[in-house]
Computed example of a mutant assay.
Amino acid sequence: MEKQTITIYDVAREANVSMATVSRVVNGNPNVKPATRKKVLEVIDRLDYRPNAVARGLASKKTTTVGVIIPDVTNMFFSSLARGIDDVATMYKYNIILANSDENNKKEVQVVNNLLAKQVDGLIYMGHNIGDNIRNEFARSKTPIVLAGSVDPEGQLGSVNIDYIAAVEGATKQLIQSGNERIALVTGPLKDAINAQYRLKGYKEALDDAGIAYDESLVFESEYSYQAGLAIFAELQKSKATAAIVADDEVAIGILNAAHDAGVSVPDDFEIITSNNTKLTEMARPRMTSIDQPLYDIGAVAMRLLTKMMNKEDIDEKTIRLGFDLTERDSTK
């Protein structure tokens, strides 16, 4: 038997009140007599009535729904951000539609359009690559957009992140101080601003300060995956690197395990600093030294910034930078 959809009309008829009264009860409006409220809530329970969020959205021109675009739902970096986003969304009574974009540019445009077609009130985008086509989609839409854990060098979009230049510069200096001269930078694609204009810049500045010549054969572009880390270790050995700064924890663990399989001791023969300080850094052996960015807070603050933009509140600064640390563990000397 097909489940009948219970409407506000059914609740009003059963409780013998107007639809406006049911609406007031559902929306928590105080102007309802306690006895009436009790009666309506009992009917709602008995009929298992669930207010239709889409219909409410049409009436108020707001769907109270936020689209969240996540490049890889299995990667702990993105899932940690998503937890912060979700908790603040719940607090402000927004529903979330989560869409996975597979870090694929064509799919990202399609995902953005699908979410905008669902009339979301705002978007949080976690991808690192903001290509021209995705920027055009953002520009065409009047929907507020915030980047979480990424950067917009053009400053058009809201964004919440850390100072990636300073973070990588500090990590590189640490490796120079412990006696490394051939330090590799294993980063995501250099077509992404976060890698080319921020991480790479911090790396170069630290080398420059120490009087070490920049060698582009020590910069490796990688996918953000464990498999990519395993594969890249042989390249690192060929480059005669004695240490690496790695932009993603899964990649870092791939490098760590490949080093172990090759009989290379971490940290004695090869030092590793990773970037996201997800739970993986504590699970690895040796435990991994990492740049510590507050992932949950980045997600939470991004969602709070988006609520302000959606409600057209005054915003002092569209780019919010949170603090970071370097957490030292056993993958460095």
Rank of each mutant, 00 (worst) to 15 (best):
K106P: 05
A166W: 03
D121P: 02
A231E: 10
S225I: 03
L236M: 14
E14C: 10
R287P: 13
R24L: 04
K204P: 15
V251E: 01
I70V: 12
L123P: 01
L147V: 02
I70L: 13
K61Q: 11
G155L: 08
I176S: 02
E154K: 12
Y9Q: 13
A148R: 00
T36R: 08
P51K: 09
K106I: 13
Q177E: 10
L58F: 10
A15F: 10
G188L: 03
N180E: 07
K240P: 02
K240Y: 09
R199A: 00
A12H: 02
A241K: 02
L256I: 07
K201G: 02
Q237W: 07
E317S: 12
T274Y: 04
S80N: 11
A12Y: 01
V112K: 01
Y226V: 13
G127I: 04
D297K: 10
M19C: 12
A193Y: 09
K33F: 10
D45Q: 07
G122Y: 02
I85Q: 00
P30C: 11
V32C: 05
L175Q: 03
A117D: 14
R285H: 05
N257T: 13
L175S: 04
P144Y: 13
G188D: 06
E313S: 04
V120W: 06
G263I: 08
D102R: 10
D87C: 14
L305Y: 05
M1A: 08
F138E: 04
D45F: 10
K118C: 09
I6P: 03
E328S: 11
V264R: 01
D325N: 15
K106R: 15
G155C: 11
G57W: 12
K107E: 11
S290L: 03
K3Q: 14
R321N: 13
S60W: 12
A206F: 05
F77Y: 11
I183Y: 00
S275H: 13
R329H: 06
A252S: 11
A89L: 15
Q156V: 09
D163A: 09
R321M: 14
V186F: 09
S225K: 03
A89K: 00
K3M: 10
N114H: 08
T143C: 10
I194A: 01
T63P: 12
Y94H: 05
M126V: 04
I298E: 00
N195H: 13
V40T: 03
A53G: 14
A59F: 13
T242M: 11
A82K: 00
L190I: 14
A117Q: 06
Q177I: 15
E42T: 11
K93H: 15
E313G: 06
L230C: 15
N133Y: 14
K173W: 11
G84E: 03
V43Y: 04
S80C: 09
P144K: 09
V246N: 04
D248W: 04
S217I: 07
N114K: 14
L218H: 03
T63V: 15
I96A: 09
D48G: 15
K142N: 12
A206E: 01
M303R: 04
I315H: 01
A53F: 10
A213S: 05
H260R: 09
T65M: 06
I320Y: 07
K204E: 11
N16S: 06
I291S: 00
E169W: 07
M309P: 06
N311W: 04
A196I: 13
N133F: 07
D268G: 10
L256R: 00
S239P: 03
I96E: 03
L81M: 07
D209L: 10
G263Q: 14
R287V: 14
N180W: 02
